[in-house]
Design a protein around this nucleic acid. Structure first.
Lengths: 127, 127
DNA sequence: TATTAATATACCATTGACAGTATATACTAA
DNA sequence: TTAGTATATACTGTCAATGGTATATTAATA
């Protein structure tokens, strides 16, 4: 995987945010959609691009598609994310806010089992 | 300066290589051209883009235009370059080779003063 | 002053990324 | 089997990036 391909991928703010969120744990499409406030089609396309590159993997759970980081995580992505989470720019702040919002969302969906994919719950340890 | 703008910039292999070389020290356009083996027009355009973003600065020395990193260097770029120089991908290897070739070129041009811009020589300490 | 070297810009054609609408697929539950 | 939910894909138009050719600009030199 060439560096330029990785950079091109994370040069898109939405893809960067998606990878930032997934590095914290798996999420289904609709929850990513909610966190990024973006249309279903657009989210699906972005995920398809990232998956095509081998950066994330997905599996089905009922009607949900759960996306997670493909392990081992690409080093350049990890390096960039870690740098940006400590840095100060409006996109960097967004990444931090996204992680906070992810926390809130997780709290909410683990409250009602019908809203929460198994994979997400197992990750959190809510069973 | 947004992270996505930086990533878009270095998502181009040539621009990444240029920044990698300039981080090691100033160079004139024709020597960058030689190191990257790229047309004059293309090099000039790339430098214009990078300069527009405020990542490099330039000054004239006779007919030469000397480009150097705009200090303080952008943190995300520095972080990415440092990571890539240690990493293993064909572009990463290219960055390392470029630095070696830069060393050879410097040795050659400091040998004949007509070929060597003052700024480059001062950097090396050949006077 | 005419010429040459180094560099920049204008112009044009091609390609590729992106957004939106409509539609298809996969699964669940009644 | 039908309806509903979640997700993916096909199709289309638009806009931005890229590369090339020609030309302009600036400075040095004969």
């Amino acid at each position: 995987m060439e560096a330029s391909e990785i950079f091109k991928c994370i040069a898109d703010t939405q893809r960067l945010r998606i990878l930032n969120l997934l590095e914290a744990g798996p999420l289904c499409v609709c929850h990513l959609q909610e966190l990024l406030d973006v249309s279903q089609v657009k989210m699906s396309k972005q995920l398809s691009i990232i998956k095509q590159m081998g950066l994330v993997e997905s599996h089905r759970e009922g009607t949900w598609m759960i996306y997670s980081i493909q392990e081992p995580i690409n080093g350049l992505i990890q390096n960039s994310l870690h740098y940006l989470r400590e840095a100060d720019c409006s996109e960097c702040n967004q990444l931090q806010r996204d992680l906070l919002n992810r926390g809130k969302l997780i709290l909410r969906i683990t409250d009602t089992a019908e809203e929460c994919p198994d994979t997400v719950c197992q990750q959190i340890g809510c069973y």
